[in-house]
């Protein structure tokens, strides 16, 4: 003999689960695809940002080799080669910018304080490191 209560429960469970799980799964899939797309776009698009006096004044892709004359509050020669950026020449008094190591990872920076210049890497692979010992 059928138990109407049991039957009703099973019935409700089936209807709710089948359709809604499809919807749920579909939305989840869209989420995963979007997440992957956003992250993929980021790893591809690392760039070198030049900040003068606190504002971004120029950006260059990190994957294109070039030398750029930066003439904001003086002269700094920026070199981008093989995915790394360095300052190879400048006319500031102590040349501390030319002595800083090359940058290639998100959040790393080269600074020329006398020229109010900060060069950073943005985009690319996320970098969760708080500090680097050299």
């Amino acid at each position: 003999m059928k138990n109407p209560v049991d039957d009703g429960r099973r019935d409700a469970r089936n209807i709710v689960r089948k359709n809604d799980l499809v919807l749920f799964g579909g939305l989840l899939l869209v989420g995963i695809v979007l997440f992957a797309a956003v992250n993929f776009a980021k790893t591809g698009g690392a760039q070198v940002d030049v900040h003068y006096d606190g504002a971004v004044v120029a950006s260059y892709p990190l994957d294109t080799d070039r030398e750029v004359d930066l003439t904001y509050n003086g002269h700094n020669l920026l070199k981008i080669e093989k995915g790394r950026a360095t300052v190879i020449d400048a006319d500031c008094p102590e040349l501390l910018c030319t002595k800083q190591r090359a940058i290639s990872k998100e959040g790393e920076s080269i600074v020329c304080l006398p020229h109010k210049l900060v060069i950073t890497v943005s985009g690319g692979k996320p970098n969760d490191v708080d500090g680097v010992l050299q």
């Binding site: 709710v16 359709n19 809604d20 799980l21 919807l23 749920f24 579909g26 939305l27 989840l28 869209v30 989420g31 995963i32 979007l34 997440f35 956003v38 992250n39 980021k42 940002d49 900040h51 606190g54 971004v56 998100e106 959040g107 790393e108 920076s109 600074v111 900060v118 950073t120 943005s122 985009g123 996320p126």
Partner: peptide
């Protein structure tokens, strides 16, 4: 139940998108 499922999925969707975009940290002086 349907509403709960849809809301959950939407929340996941939003989470997935924002956690991806939010990782872009500005690191100037």
């Amino acid at each position: 139940l349907k509403t709960v499922c849809v809301l959950c999925a939407c929340a996941l969707l939003v989470c997935a998108c924002t956690s991806g975009a939010g990782a872009n940290k500005d690191n100037t002086s």
